[in-house]
Design a protein around this nucleic acid. Structure first.
Lengths: 263, 263
DNA sequence: CGGTGTGAAAGGTTTCACAGCT
DNA sequence: AGCTGTGAAACCTTTCACACCG
């Protein structure tokens, strides 16, 4: 995901696998829910179920953080919440800026899940002068001209890009130049950034395409009894998005099969 | 990601690795851009750069689909677009329903990236009676009561959940009961579904937390010359989200180190 | 020559299964 | 007895490097 970072061997054994890091927020959410219900301890089995993973994975994950459980008992909920929060860096709060206040940007600004973790929307930025000053989610939108000043003044290091694809790289460059080192990109483009800057991307259309792939497989696999007359039109005939095949064009001999030429 | 699917050994050698499937949409996007610029062929190196991966990976990925390139030349852009589209199941179009037309749901309804691939928003559904009939992105919102009928009538097999977390499981159950077999979930909850139903989740807050983790590491690593007086307040003192440690409660011996007791 | 296609090596992730602590 | 913590096995993914072909 990073661009060219040499993946330093980590300060030492502090090497928490990327796959584990990606699951810590899941555990944290499940633990927070337990905490709110005042559940004092939880076993790996229960917590794993709540987080949607299996217990072996969870225990292995936690083993990278240290030994925070008690054998024969389980994990202390409050204590784990604290340890994971600390590991994720959520015990400090992170000001973020959102650039591009269209439908999606507005949705993000209104999203409660940010504030509840350590994130604070420090500013909303948009290129449209007509939007400047208008409040979205209670925060006045500022013009792109102010971008550098906003970032410096608020000590922002995380930026969210929710602009159209065409503007994303340019916005990204300015964010990086202004000192931002982590970017969450919603624009459907590959961003190029210097070493040391992290980019994560969220792409709605890609997720749907992955689902479509599996969905297609299911359709072709109707072997057993059709559980129920599903409302799908089985195998629609066609809808050539790219004009049909258009084969790879041979070199010489045997071409010109296009015209009619019966012997 | 699936719940209990036995991960069937695939019809045979049709086993395209999951990691590869997840990248096909990236390649497709890059290829579409080339196609629009009427570029006829592209090398693995060029295409890989455009898609943000390395060329070895790309060639390996394509090798699972078949041999669609020409040695010494590269890949025929149009032909590859077609092959990947077909592999992803995008040569047919997929009606989708979006449930939960809040900020995010509206953003999704307006998102152009769906239509441009093989996806068509067949209906928008919301539980709020006040929204019923109001058009969003040119499509009238329908009430949740209609959910089953909408899905059956339109032969929908893909659903998008953009409701609050509390409603998600219930909506999910109804979608599944109505015949939907692929779900894209934006609600911050773990959904449980029967075997055979695919769920993919997109979680904004989780992505930010992963960024925060890496961001924190960077801060602790300021070894070399500080490239520039970045506008960050280095290491904020604290902000106990969970009350501090609250250690795991020892059993006996050696406790009560809390009081002062200098020898 | 240049660039694909692919075995084989290296690296990362998940699962297993059980020793060891409470 | 029960549940964590963890080596070791199994599996998956990425990278290497080069044979092969246009």
């Amino acid at each position: 995901m990073a661009t060219g970072r040499t993946h330093r061997p980590a300060t030492r054994s502090r090497g928490i696998p990327e796959a584990t890091v990606a699951r810590l927020p899941l555990y944290l959410r499940a633990l927070t829910a337990l905490s709110e219900r005042s559940v004092p301890t939880v076993s790996s089995e229960e917590l794993a179920t709540a987080a949607g993973v299996n217990s072996a994975k969870l225990r292995k994950d936690f083993s990278y953080l240290g030994s925070y459980g008690t054998r024969g008992v389980g994990y202390d909920v409050e204590y784990l919440v604290y340890q994971i929060s600390r590991e994720l860096g959520l015990t400090q709060d992170w000001p973020v800026v959102i650039v591009g206040i269209g439908n999606l940007g507005a949705a993000l600004a209104n999203y409660g899940g940010f504030a509840s973790r350590g994130f604070r929307v420090a500013a909303l930025i948009d290129a449209d002068p007509a939007m400047a000053g208008k409040p979205v989610a209670g925060i006045p939108v500022q013009h792109t001209d102010e971008l550098e000043k906003i970032i410096t003044d608020n000590g922002v290091s995380i930026g969210v890009i929710a602009t159209p694809a065409g503007a994303a790289q340019q916005v990204c460059d300015r964010l990086v130049a202004a000192g931002i080192t982590s970017i969450l990109n919603f624009a459907p483009t590959v961003l190029s950034v210097p070493d040391g800057v992290d980019v994560r991307k969220v792409d709605l259309s890609i997720e749907l395409q992955i689902l479509a792939f599996h969905e297609q497989r299911k359709a072709g696999e109707e072997v057993g009894a059709p559980r129920r007359p599903r409302g799908r039109f089985h195998r629609r005939p066609w809808r050539p998005i790219a004009r049909p095949p258009a084969p790879p064009a041979p070199t010489a001999a045997g071409k010109d099969l296009t015209g009619t030429c019966p012997p």
